[in-house]
Simulated assay, not measured.
Amino acid sequence: MTRVQLEVFSLLAELRGFTLVAQRLGISQSAVSHALKSLETDLGVPLLDRTTAQIEMTDIGVRLLPRAREVLGLTQTIRQEADDYLGLRQGSLRIGSFGPTSTLVLLPPILEKFHQNYPDIEVHIDEGSDADVVQWIQQRQVDLGFVVLDDERFETYPLLEDQLVALVPGSGELADHDQIELSELCQHRFIMTEAGSSPLIERLFSDAGLVPTISSRTSQVLSTMALVARDEGVAIVAESAIPQMVEMPGLAIRPLSPRHHRRVGLALLDSNKATPAARAFIEIAQQSHRR
């Protein structure tokens, strides 16, 4: 069992294509096939289901994937520990990010300082929904990621606190209110954003004994804003997720009553197993966003 074999297995599960994996690793497609076959022979179990048109993991493949990624993460840690000792500061760092809050507000100053201090470390930013980032951290697909706090599944480092606000059509009755209650939003079609706040929003309604009439779900805050501006429904988003440079006629933003706050921070599984690059990133993040 080699690192290349485990990397091929992990990337096939992520990219779902032999050609894509070959391009990512800079090797031939036949080398990818050979590496997977050798790993299956070594383990004595099939990792991919070859009876389907698309690449699908077998049951045992799904079970072994997190273990493979854990081993890959540890080997990367060993390599970067050695590089750190030698003063090379080389390697790579993969970050999970969701929505404008982490991608546009939190990341830029952190990355600027990180690249200044560690110019030879390549940083990969994987963007997805809240649930995507959580899954990536759990499966060690990323070294660390931005999450909505609190999350007891991870070691976390708070960076930002903001509040949730209501988005309502500018021409509707709700736009005349200084503050908006959750019960008022339940009287309209609701657009659920999955760009950083959906679990928190769902919990707010649940705790209040309310059930919103969800008409659509969006993965981008701009899409949510555009739908509300066209009177397709109402929504709740985090204040820091609203792009400040975007003006959207027909959209009104109002605070909730009572106020509801949200915290965002970095999360990882185990700081003791984190790479030097990941620990340095956390330290710079805390310096850049002192609370």
Results as ranks from 00 to 15, higher is better:
7 E>S: 05
9 F>N: 01
9 F>G: 00
13 A>L: 00
13 A>K: 02
14 E>I: 06
15 L>V: 02
15 L>K: 10
18 F>L: 00
19 T>G: 05
22 A>D: 07
24 R>L: 02
26 G>F: 11
28 S>K: 09
29 Q>V: 14
29 Q>P: 02
30 S>Y: 08
32 V>H: 11
32 V>C: 05
32 V>N: 05
33 S>W: 09
35 A>L: 08
36 L>Q: 04
36 L>M: 14
48 L>A: 10
49 D>R: 13
50 R>I: 03
50 R>P: 01
52 T>V: 14
52 T>D: 07
52 T>P: 03
58 T>Q: 05
63 R>L: 14
64 L>M: 14
64 L>A: 06
64 L>C: 05
66 P>D: 12
69 R>T: 03
70 E>L: 12
73 G>I: 04
75 T>Y: 09
82 A>W: 12
84 D>T: 13
85 Y>H: 10
86 L>T: 01
94 R>P: 00
102 S>D: 11
103 T>N: 13
103 T>E: 12
103 T>F: 13
104 L>N: 13
104 L>V: 07
105 V>N: 03
106 L>S: 08
107 L>V: 03
107 L>D: 05
110 I>Q: 00
112 E>N: 07
113 K>V: 12
116 Q>T: 14
121 I>A: 11
124 H>W: 04
126 D>T: 11
129 S>D: 07
132 D>M: 03
133 V>Y: 08
134 V>C: 04
136 W>N: 03
137 I>H: 09
138 Q>E: 15
140 R>A: 11
143 D>E: 05
143 D>G: 03
145 G>C: 04
147 V>T: 10
148 V>D: 11
149 L>M: 10
150 D>P: 15
150 D>Q: 15
151 D>M: 06
152 E>A: 12
153 R>V: 09
158 P>M: 08
158 P>Q: 10
159 L>Q: 06
166 A>H: 01
168 V>D: 07
173 E>P: 09
178 D>A: 14
178 D>V: 01
180 I>S: 02
180 I>T: 03
181 E>R: 14
182 L>T: 06
182 L>K: 02
184 E>M: 07
185 L>I: 08
186 C>G: 05
188 H>W: 09
189 R>G: 13
194 E>W: 02
195 A>E: 02
197 S>W: 05
198 S>R: 01
205 F>W: 00
206 S>Y: 10
207 D>F: 02
207 D>L: 12
207 D>M: 07
209 G>S: 09
209 G>M: 06
210 L>E: 04
212 P>I: 03
213 T>V: 09
214 I>T: 13
215 S>F: 07
216 S>F: 07
217 R>E: 08
222 L>S: 12
224 T>Q: 13
234 V>H: 01
235 A>H: 00
235 A>G: 00
235 A>C: 05
237 V>P: 03
239 E>Q: 15
240 S>Q: 11
240 S>W: 04
240 S>T: 09
245 M>F: 11
245 M>P: 00
247 E>Q: 14
247 E>N: 13
248 M>K: 05
248 M>P: 02
254 R>Q: 08
257 S>K: 10
257 S>D: 14
257 S>E: 14
257 S>W: 03
260 H>K: 04
261 H>G: 00
261 H>N: 10
261 H>P: 00
262 R>Y: 10
264 V>T: 15
270 D>P: 04
271 S>D: 08
271 S>I: 10
275 T>V: 04
279 R>M: 13
282 I>K: 06
282 I>H: 06
282 I>E: 01
282 I>F: 12
283 E>C: 06
284 I>W: 11
285 A>F: 10
288 S>H: 04
289 H>V: 11
